[in-house]
Design a protein around this nucleic acid. Structure first.
Length: 200
DNA sequence: CATGCGATTCTCT
DNA sequence: GAGAATCGCATGG
């Protein structure tokens, strides 16, 4: 059921980002399984993408995870508060990653509500990259973990979306990236209530 | 070693 | 719709 390692090794991170929509993402943290299917992603394209941490092949203790072989997690802290979960793709030396911005939860919703401190379920429980990581219990101590592990993995359960149901647009929060900020590297399922806005 | 800032979210207005 | 919270990381001296 898990997506094979081969799935993550392709060199076209933009195409992989789009094909991740509808794939299921699960974590098993503290013996609790939580997850759902992915409804929003963004591609970060290695050395030539000014919006990516790896722009210009910048290799630092933080970014080295992006340079590893695809099929692992890249987790980092942003604004001193929020953990962000990415999926590394391509082969070793090609620093490509996909930011998971929203998940449509199906499993372990009660556990997510506890982690998010949200006694009354709202649709923004897994909307936005920081929220996804928090709801799924993802933190930096699982940075670089394999997606073939029993802690964090993806599954194909036969759900897919056609082009009419998918919207493509520029990425969020990357205005500093100059012309690269307008690249159509964001993909989401049109109208899904768990997608961060705008979602039409 | 000092400094500046970010692939954001929440709360209140 | 605006402002605060908050700290690791990258950069330069």
């Amino acid at each position: 059921m898990k997506l094979s390692e081969q799935f993550y090794l392709g060199n076209d991170v933009v195409a992989i980002s789009k094909s991740l929509l509808g794939k299921y993402l699960f974590t098993c943290i503290d013996s609790v399984i939580t997850g759902g299917y992915i409804v929003e992603t963004e591609a970060y394209n290695g050395a030539i993408d000014r919006a990516a941490h790896s722009y210009g092949n910048r290799l630092t203790p933080r970014t080295k995870t992006m340079f590893m072989q695809g099929g692992i997690a890249y987790v980092y802290l942003c604004y001193g508060i929020h953990e962000m979960f990415n999926i590394v793709t391509s082969v070793e030396g090609h620093a490509q990653a996909i930011l998971i911005r929203a998940v449509h939860p199906t499993e372990g919703i009660e556990a997510m509500q506890v982690r998010r401190n949200m006694p009354v379920l709202k649709s923004n429980i897994t909307t936005g990259p920081g929220s996804v990581a928090k709801a799924l219990g993802i933190s930096r101590n699982i940075n670089a973990i394999s997606l073939q592990s029993d802690t964090l993995w993806l599954e194909d359960r036969g759900l897919s979306f056609n082009d009419d149901q998918i919207t493509t647009g520029p990425r969020i929060g990357v205005d500093y990236a100059g012309e690269d900020a307008s690249l159509p590297y964001r993909f989401y399922v049109k109208g899904d209530i768990y997608v961060s806005k705008p979602n039409k």
